[in-house]
Amino acid sequence: MTILIKAFSVISLFIWCTTAFGFSDALKGNIYSPGNLKPTDSVLRVEAGVVAPVFSLPAVSGGRISLAQYRGKKNVVLSFVPAAWTPVCSDQWPGYNIIKDIFSANNAILLGITVDNIPTLFAWTNQMGNLWFPVLSDFWPHGAVANKYGVLRTDGTAERAIFVIDMEGIIQFAHVNDINKRPRLEILVKKLERLKK
């Protein structure tokens, strides 16, 4: 009977979770659904209170962005998302795109990171509209930054993770969300509001 209940639960989850995100008409026909995935598939290598691992990654807009360039100037939010053209990821950043004022009020910059290459990210983010924040490619060496933070999944994609790093470069919040769901915006905003401006 336990087996039956487990089997039914798995089926129910698959039915109800796979398509609940990425419903914007703007994305119609362009989103690949990977189905319901293991909620998390990595082990964090950092935690709140430690110095954030430094990195430098190519940006879709050109050039490279390094974490160090914000030291002493701005709080930094890293938003890792698993992959371009997938359901939840395709609407998470468009949501962040309308809250630039919240980031600015908390002297914070958002850096969006995936393990996709630049051309893919270029095409994907273009259909989101004009994103105000840099989007970085952790494609090569594949997932190296995601791996430093402990959010590289065993299939080579990244977790849906958020790191809030203060102006001194210290991680104030490390959160790995269920990959199948979008993290609640209020969680991030509350953390931002606690930072030194």
Binding site: F23, S24, D25, L27, P94, G95, I98, M128, G129
Partner: peptide
């Protein structure tokens, strides 16, 4: 609608 939907925003 959805806050996260670019088409809804536009």
């Amino acid at each position: 609608f959805s806050m996260y939907c670019p088409a809804c925003q536009r």
